[in-house]
Amino acid sequence: MKVIEIVKLLRLSAATGEEGLDREAETGYCGDLLSDVMANSKKGALWLTIQSHQNIVAVAVLRELAAVILVNGRMPDEETKIKAQGEGVPILLSPLPAYELAGKLYEIGIGRA
């Protein structure tokens, strides 16, 4: 499913990286430890996290993630937005906690074999 469709279905908002909304999201990963996400996330994953600093962009680029979703109403730092825009990484926002949002993503088929 394309990231843009997920944004519409789950009423997420896009903070930046609009040009990346056309990407395919295949699965998801929840994590706030960057090395854990580096080690265990899959290509094309949506990454659910509370980390909002600029280093999340490098992780998303290096792991070729579809998008980063900041949960619990977190907002990205200004530097994060600038970096994400430069790299074309969508940063999406949700007021829900990671557990609830992951459940909704699973319901719409993301990450189901």
Binding site: L33, L34, D36, M38, A39, Q51, N55
Partner: peptide, 15 residues
């Protein structure tokens, strides 16, 4: 606090 320092860096490199 930034989510680094999980003690996974060198093990990730090794793997």
């Amino acid at each position: 606090e930034m989510g680094f320092g999980a003690g996974m860096g060198l093990p990730n490199i090794q793997k």
